[in-house]
């Protein structure tokens, strides 16, 4: 199997005080999402506002890090930090708690992937303050 993990870039994300808890948790090996304390809505992308009910009252909660593939593609023409990567898998994953997140599927033969396939989160360090949540096929 190709060791995709070692050749995927890990660009440092832009971190603001609003989103720092997400990246800090990822660095510590947790997938934390904001949830609305008023309506319990899982918020994605991470932000300090619930678009579902208009509340500013949100809290960070750890989620399972498990989910399934909504869609995926093998990209052959990357841009920016991915420009020199021969190819990589970009995917949308529906995590079990209800958010649909853009990510990469790693450590998997792209030809073996299917929509609906179960996946689980892994973390790739990106600079001193963050790690990127990516996903691998669940065993």
């Amino acid at each position: 199997m190709v060791d995709i993990k070692t050749r995927l870039p890990t660009p440092e994300p832009f971190i603001s005080p609003e989103t720092r808890p997400f990246w800090t948790a990822a660095k510590q090996g947790r997938l934390d999402l904001p949830f609305c304390k008023s309506c319990n809505h899982p918020i994605w992308y991470p932000k300090a506002f619930c678009g579902a009910c208009g509340s500013l009252d949100v809290e960070w909660r750890q989620v399972s890090g498990e989910g399934k593939i909504y869609s995926y593609t093998q990209v052959h023409r990357g841009e920016g930090p991915y420009r020199d990567v021969e190819n990589y898998v970009l995917a949308l994953v529906d995590i079990d708690e209800g958010a649909r997140v853009l990510t990469n599927i790693v450590d998997a033969d792209p030809a073996s992937l299917t929509i609906g396939q179960r996946v689980r989160v892994v973390f790739h360090e990106a600079g001193d303050a963050a790690a990127l949540p990516r996903f691998v096929p669940a065993k």
Binding site: Y70, S71, T73, V75, L90, A91, L102, L132
Partner: peptide
């Protein structure tokens, strides 16, 4: 939450 994963216009429409 998107560009760090190599998001491109073609990649998103491919999804």
């Amino acid at each position: 939450f998107e560009t760090v994963y190599g998001e491109t216009n073609a990649g998103i429409y491919a999804l």
